[in-house]
C-alpha cells in the first residue's frame, strides 16, 4: 500500500524535533532570554523620562524585537543547520514536500519568539511597573496570534533563500536590522522615507505589530491609519500570500539546487 504522507504529521514531527534540538543546546538561553531582556532594558533607559503608554510602547518594541530576532534567525538557521549537520539530503530525500518540514520548524521558532515577547512583557509589568493592564486583552491575544503567523510565513520565505545558496546565511544576517526598522518595531514608520514605508506596508508583521499596540495601549494612535480589525485582516492576507509564495518558490529552489548539485554543500 502506498504511504500517504500526512502534512500534519510532518509539520508536527518537524516542530517537535526543532524544539528538542533547541532545548538540547544550553546556549538557547542567550538569544531567547538574555538578548530580549537587554533590548528591553535599553529601551527603558532611552525612554526613562516618559511614563505609562509610551513606556509600554517601548517595552512592546523590545518584546517584538525578541520575536523578530528568534524568528528570522531561527528559521534561517534551522535550514542552514541541516546543511552543516549533513541532514539536508536525508531531509530532502523524504517523500514530503519541503514546505511542510520547514513550516514545522518555523512555527516552533516563532512560538519560541512569542514566548520571549510575553517574557518581556512580564518583565516590564513586574519589574519596571510599566502599565498595569492591557486595553483589550482579547484583541491583544488575537493580534499577537496573527502576527505570530505572519512571522512564520516570513520565515518560510527566508528559508528558501537559505536552501538555494550557501551565501544564504549572509542574507539573513543582513536582513534582520532593516526588518526591525521597516516594521516599525524600533521607530514609528512615519519617520521613515516614503519608499521604505511602502516596503513596510507589504510586510505582514508591520500590520500585526501595530494591531498589538492598538490592543495594548488604549490611547495609542496607530502608525497605520486603520482600525485594528483591518490590521488583523491584512496581516492574515499577507500571511497567506507569503505561504503560497513560499511553497511555489520552494519547489523551484529544490529544482535549481538539484540541477546545480548544490543540495549537499556545506
Amino acid at each position: 500500500m502506498a504511504l500517504e504522507v500526512s502534512r500534519i504529521q510532518v509539520v508536527k514531527a518537524s516542530m517537535v524535533l526543532t524544539a528538542r534540538n533547541f532545548f538540547a543546546d544550553p546556549q538557547w538561553v542567550i538569544p531567547s532570554i538574555i538578548a530580549p531582556f537587554v533590548f528591553t532594558l535599553v529601551a527603558l533607559f532611552l525612554f526613562s523620562n516618559v511614563t505609562g503608554p509610551i513606556l509600554l510602547y517601548a517595552v512592546l518594541g523590545g518584546g517584538m524585537m525578541g520575536m523578530w530576532g528568534t524568528t528570522v534567525y531561527g528559521s534561517g538557521e534551522s535550514i542552514s543547520f541541516d546543511r552543516w549537520n549533513g541532514t539536508m539530503e536525508c531531509t530532502l530525500s523524504a517523500p514530503s514536500p519541503l514546505i511542510w518540514i520547514v513550516l514545522g520548524r518555523v512555527i516552533w521558532n516563532t512560538l519560541e519568539g512569542s514566548i520571549n515577547a510575553i517574557f518581556i512583557l512580564v518583565i516590564g509589568f513586574l519589574w519596571f511597573r510599566v502599565g498595569v493592564s492591557l486595553a483589550d486583552p482579547l484583541l491583544f491575544a488575537a493580534s499577537t496570534f496573527v502576527t505570530f503567523l505572519s512571522l512564520s510565513a516570513f520565515g518560510t520565505l527566508l528559508a528558501n533563500v537559505i536552501v538555494l545558496s550557501r551565501k544564504g546565511g549572509f542574507i539573513t544576517n543582513g536582513i534582520e536590522i532593516p526588518v526591525y526598522i521597516a516594521t516599525g518595531t524600533m521607530f514609528p514608520i512615519g519617520l521613515l522615507p516614503f519608499y521604505v514605508g511602502a516596503v513596510s506596508y507589504s510586510i505582514g508583521p508591520t500590520w500585526g505589530i501595530d494591531a498589538i499596540r492598538k490592543a495594548a495601549i488604549g490611547s495609542y494612535v496607530g502608525q497605520l491609519p486603520f482600525s485594528i480589525f483591518v490590521d488583523i485582516a491584512v496581516t492574515i492576507i499577507i500571511t497567506v500570500v507569503y505561504f503560497a509564495m513560499s511553497s511555489v518558490l520552494m519547489v523551484r529552489v529544490e529544482k535549481i539546487a538539484k540541477r546545480n548539485g548544490t543540495l549537499g554543500d556545506f
Partner: peptide, 17 residues
C-alpha cells in the same frame, strides 16, 4: 546528533508518512 537515536527514527518515520 543532539537528540536520541529513537527520536531520530521516529522523526524520519513521520517524514515518510
Amino acid at each position: 546528533n543532539r537528540v536520541t537515536g529513537l527520536q531520530n527514527l521516529l522523526y524520519f518515520s513521520d517524514l515518510y508518512g
